[in-house]
């Protein structure tokens, strides 16, 4: 009787059929593997042979990249600004250290344990960030990280306090691959973990779950109105991100055989935001590119001005925000008037 209530039989006319095949193509194109993705992994593997003396800094990059991919799930997908992601990184680092010290020297077990414990903390604290504005979320996440740092500092009998936790040796990976002096196996280990986590995050990004996260970020009110249970999704992604952040912390412990309270420091959370902003949020590889640029930059600065590199990092942050804003503003000029106002008001 009318166009929309017509059932499937009447619908399979030519235009609908074309639409369906085009839609299928669009959807497949969404998650095709991009050229740069292959390039990243080839370069990462090639580095083992090309730059065998730089493996320590490459390991550092891989760990930071993993940490950044974790935050990207929270920030780039769900749109939650966190100033305390180091809480999970630090907890993972300490768990891995304590595992190696008291229970088992094999690192993969420690890695999984660290991820699980951090994930539990992420799950428990995720309920604190469900409500409120950006500002309350910032403060809550910051507060949690500061509390963790305070706990680590005060429970010296367990964590070594300000002196840090050391005196443990990390055993061979899977009982076979020793951590060597050049950091070769350590790098490969970190790279494998980074690769696996990135692939998991990638699947997530193109799943209905990932789409719903971006919907929550883009327009939380409408997301509710198409049936997205936002709270549950945020709890899930925040917990998962905490698992990955904890694993990143564990990798740091295991490759350096030491944990200092620095793993929970504020600057770690702030640096991480900077990494993501350099690389771009919401497409996972931003974390990896950002980690590469940030680590090389920091390394170079700390050679040029050993004591004052922080100044230049700060300057870059400020410059980035100010120019980024301009770029965004030019962007908006291309949109119809109605939308530019809406974007600016956000």
């Amino acid at each position: 009787m009318n166009a929309i209530s017509q059932d499937v039989t009447a619908m399979t006319d030519s235009s609908a059929a074309t639409a369906e095949s085009r839609a299928a193509k669009f959807m497949k194109r969404r998650n095709r593997i991009r050229f740069y993705e292959i390039l990243v992994w080839i370069a990462a593997i090639a580095a083992i042979f090309v730059a065998p003396t730089k493996l320590l800094i490459l390991t550092e990059i891989a760990i930071l990249a993993l940490f950044a991919v974790s935050l990207d799930l929270v920030l780039g997908f769900a749109g939650i600004v966190s100033l305390g992601h180091a809480a999970f990184f630090g907890l993972g680092a300490y768990i891995a250290g304590l595992m190696a010290l008291h229970f088992i020297a094999e690192p993969v077990v420690g890695l999984i344990a660290a991820g699980l414990v951090s994930g539990v903390l992420g799950f428990l604290t995720s309920f604190l960030i469900l409500r409120g504005s950006d500002l309350t979320r910032l403060m809550t996440t910051l507060g949690i990280a500061l509390m963790m740092a305070e706990v680590a500092n005060q429970m010296a009998w367990l964590t070594g306090g300000a002196d840090g936790l050391g005196g443990f040796t990390v055993g061979p990976i899977l009982g076979t691959f020793e951590f060597d002096l050049f950091g070769r196996n350590g790098y490969i280990y970190c790279l494998v973990v980074l690769f696996l986590v990135t692939m998991i995050a990638r699947r997530l990004a193109f799943s209905p779950f990932g789409l719903s996260l971006k919907a929550i970020k883009g327009n939380p009110m409408r997301a509710g109105m198409v049936g997205v249970p936002a709270r549950r999704r945020i709890v899930a992604v925040y917990s998962l991100a905490a698992v990955f952040a904890g694993m990143a912390g564990a990798l740091l412990t295991q490759t350096t055989s030491f944990v200092s309270p620095d793993v929970l420091a504020f600057h770690r959370s702030a640096d991480l935001l900077m990494v993501l902003v350099i690389g771009g949020t919401g497409y996972l590889y931003g974390g990896i590119f950002g980690a590469i640029i940030f680590t090389l930059l920091k390394d170079w600065l700390s050679v040029v001005t050993p004591q004052y590199w922080m100044f230049w990092i700060g300057l870059i942050l400020v410059a980035m925000v100010l120019t980024g804003r301009d770029r965004l503003a030019r962007w908006i000029e291309f949109l119809p008037d109605r939308f530019s106002r809406k974007e600016a008001g956000r």
């Binding site: 969404r30 998650n31 699947r203 799943s207 209905p208 779950f209 719903s212 198409v226 049936g227 997205v228």
Partner: peptide, 21 residues
Amino acid sequence: ALAIAEREGIGHNLWRSIAGY
């Protein structure tokens, strides 16, 4: 597609690509 996925109760699936549905 998001709205349909949520309606069908598959919105929580984080392993399968939408293209697979």
